[in-house]
Write a protein that binds this DNA or RNA. Structure first.
Lengths: 186, 186
DNA sequence: ATGGATGCAAAGCGTTTGCATACAG
DNA sequence: CTGTATGCAAACGCTTTGCATCCAT
């Protein structure tokens, strides 16, 4: 299942921080992706069911990275409008969202696939902390530019890339707080 | 299980193409990694058993990327010196080789982890063909340099990176051969 | 001798799928 | 109505693990 490029991105609506569609009430933030998804589904003679709608909105309710199981957990708690979405449907829907180009796999951390929104966001890559497994975004246009050139040189038709920078984040690298130092020394 | 940097690399012994220790008979090519592995094991009070030796040598017998299951398949066929290495031991040994810094995961292709040697080889990254799943290496020092800087800027202590460039390789992008064109047009 | 290593088979874990049922268009 | 989608539970594929046995040192 490969992601395909989203035909018409709408980056203008988003800030660099990934805060979407400013000045809209939270409950509407996820309306645009849901609509985009409906268009995609329609073009494939597929249906925007209530379950699929719930999943898209849950995923686009914030702009954090997410794992499938997180969505399952969140939806199990919430039980939106009396409807309970099954694990199987969530997996299936995430697959379609990937195909639709609305989300993409960005990394594999802790033996799980990590997704993020891919809808009008600037290209970026990630640091992955080996200790706390946190993902930290960074942007660097030089890298993508560079890759375009290299790919062209190799006759490779590049559709995207995935760059994980591994190491220890500043948080985890920091020595224990002074308050605990003394105790440690005893 | 995180890979650690191999203390003393021996890049001089290898060419850019990854052809190891020129002018050695094939059966000796894998002696150096095996020795390196023994040192690592010794330092951890672990043993270089016959099984582990067989696995290292099989892995370092050539310089291709590999998946665990390939090694399992190859060793099942060969049955080196009357010894049959179990699947479990192969998995366990590959884990240790990773910890020892002799191999590393380079990509995830076709839902499987792909490994490659990380013993005296120049840093490089990979193109992954979405059609045929082949891995194509490329080198680009600018990228690593770039990453060092970016990581430093973020207070991130980088230990390595994994860069997969996705797309279609020149092979798969090539239109059907002329010989078949005519038939296609009927 | 003895602590580490192996092989086997069973368990784990995230993910996928077959099938009967439910529902969107 | 009709063909898609859902939920459930069972199947899956890769990987890990418990445990009795084996063996390198």
């Amino acid at each position: 299942m490969f992601r395909q490029t989203c035909a018409d991105k709408v980056g203008e609506q988003f800030s660099d921080k990934g805060i979407a569609v400013k000045n809209l009430a939270p409950e509407n933030v996820s309306a645009a992706p849901a609509e985009k998804f409906r268009e995609y589904l329609e073009s494939r003679r597929m249906r925007l069911t209530q379950e699929r709608d719930i999943v898209v909105r849950e995923i686009f309710a914030d702009h954090e990275h997410f794992e499938t199981d997180e969505i399952v957990a969140r939806l199990t708690k919430k039980r939106v409008g009396g409807t309970r979405v099954s694990r199987a449907t969530i997996y299936r829907t995430i697959g379609h969202l990937e195909d639709a180009g609305l989300i993409r796999k960005v990394a594999r951390s802790n033996d799980r696939e990590v997704y993020e929104h891919d809808y009008g966001y600037p290209q970026h890559d990630h640091f992955i902390c080996e200790k706390c497994h946190s993902l930290i975004e960074f942007r660097n246009d030089a890298i993508s530019k560079n890759l375009e050139t290299i790919a062209a040189d190799h006759g490779f038709r590049m559709t995207g890339h995935r760059l994980e920078v591994h190491g220890i984040c500043s948080q985890c690298a920091r020595p224990p707080s002074r308050r605990h130092r003394k105790l440690d020394m005893i």
